[in-house]
């Protein structure tokens, strides 16, 4: 994430907080991020210095036409400042800054089999215990290669309670004491 992206995001967050529309914009930012992340062509086009600004403007208008005025004017500003390549970073930064402001924690849980609701509650409790956060957004991921148990990732911290990890530890133990 570039410094410029963080600054743009901060400005948007300040603006929306004043107008108390930050929650709606938060949802829209997530959409923006998902859209850009999902389309390689869009990423390339935004980064490309060959594509004319007017073409970029038209494309963005077309894709994000239903969004709030804040988002649309952000895009206009970026186009004028020749910084439209930062759009994805700004969305990302906005989301993380909003999360920080509201005390929301995003956690990624990886399991070998789909997670049941009761287990999900337990995992949520574990996250709250580990981080002290009040509001947790849990993303689920399936990965059969971890064999069993779960891996919880919150930011840069990882809580690894998977069977594969236990095997790795056992392997190391047997190797070092040989």
């Amino acid at each position: 994430m570039s410094r410029a992206a963080i600054r743009y995001a901060k400005a948007v967050l300040d603006l929306t907080s004043e107008a108390s529309t930050s929650k709606e914009v938060y949802g829209e930012m997530k959409d923006v991020q998902k859209t850009i992340e999902g389309s390689k062509e869009l990423q390339l086009m935004l980064k490309s210095p060959i594509v004319k600004h007017e073409d970029k403007r038209a494309v963005l208008k077309e894709i994000f036409q239903g969004n709030s005025k804040t988002i649309l004017s952000l895009m206009d500003i970026l186009l004028n400042n020749k910084r439209v390549n930062l759009l994805e970073g700004i969305a990302e930064s906005y989301i993380s800054q909003y999360n920080k402001q509201e005390g929301i924690i995003e956690a990624l849980v990886t399991t070998a089999i789909p997670l049941e609701e009761s287990l999900k509650q337990k995992v949520m409790a574990k996250v709250k215990e580990l981080t002290g956060a009040t509001n947790v957004i849990l993303t689920k991921k399936l990965d059969p290669s971890i064999l069993g148990g779960f891996i919880l990732r919150v930011g840069d911290m990882q809580y690894n309670a998977s069977i594969a990890n236990n095997f790795d530890q056992l392997k190391k133990e047997l190797n070092t004491s040989r």
């Binding site: 148990g149 809580y159 056992l170």
Partner: peptide, 9 residues
Amino acid sequence: ASASLDEVG
């Protein structure tokens, strides 16, 4: 076997 809490990247 213990679950490990690590800082990761």
